Amino acid sequence: MLLETRALTAGYGQFRALFGVDVAIDTGECIAIIGANGAGKSTLMRSISGVLRNEPGMVVHRGEPIGALSSAAVMKRGIAMVPEGRKLFPSLTVEENLLIGGQSRKAAGPWDLGAIYDLFPVLKERRHSPGTALSGGQQQMVAIGRALMSNPELLLCDEISLGLAPVVIRDIYAALPKIRAGGAAIVVVEQDIGKALAVADRVYCMMEGRVTLAARASEISREAIHAAYFGEAA
């Protein structure tokens, strides 16, 4: 298994957001984490990426405990996150933002500036523009490209469609199969259930900090999702 969380409990100060969460991601796989606002999805991503530190054995990468590592150390292991809200460097151009991601490069791989520009051609056209001068969708493409520049084996995507126009969401989701073809496993945090089911091999549903459903995307029913999402029968 590429990565697992084992009875992961996490939170902020005295507030607990996750209670004994178990998820697993295999090499080259795409999984989706769905759930309403406040379900704990982003806290899960922050715990895996090292933004939140936990007990070492609560997050395991290739058999090694990494739950207590810093985000920089986690990235060096080949785990990169596209954060909710994009968080570009406002003083840098598009290309400079992308190059920042390359400074954390784990190893040689398929992703460099040329490959990112092939994936998102509009970024090549806007490469000398300030990152924050772009549309929300274009900024999201920069955030994805910045993470890919480290050539990760696991890409964590936290709410990548949030607040974007449908046509932009379509273009971003069209890039995910190409990213997988480059060898990366992907975790997608998504509130749009249809989008999640369309790209994922497996789906985890969360509610109030717990996993309420884990199933293969091809086998899951709308009734089961409804019950897991809202905690009641359809």
Rank of each mutant, 00 (worst) to 15 (best):
M1I: 15
L3I: 11
T5S: 11
A7M: 13
T9L: 04
T9I: 06
T9Y: 01
A10M: 06
A10K: 03
L18C: 00
G20S: 02
V21E: 06
D26Y: 03
D26S: 08
T27G: 05
A32T: 02
G40I: 03
G40T: 01
S42D: 02
T43R: 01
L44G: 04
M45T: 05
S47T: 12
S47C: 14
I48Q: 07
R53A: 11
E64S: 15
L69S: 05
A73G: 09
G78V: 11
M81D: 00
E96Q: 13
Q103L: 15
D112A: 11
A115K: 11
Y117K: 04
R127M: 09
T132Y: 11
G137K: 11
Q138W: 06
A143H: 02
G145A: 12
M149R: 12
M149D: 09
N151E: 10
P152S: 13
L154A: 00
S161T: 12
L164D: 12
L164Q: 08
I169G: 04
R170D: 15
P177Y: 09
K178P: 00
G182W: 14
A184P: 01
A185K: 06
V188A: 07
D192S: 07
K195H: 08
C205Q: 01
E208F: 14
A214F: 02
A217P: 13
I220F: 06
R222T: 07
A224L: 01
A224T: 09
I225M: 13
H226G: 15
A233K: 14
A234Q: 13
A234I: 05
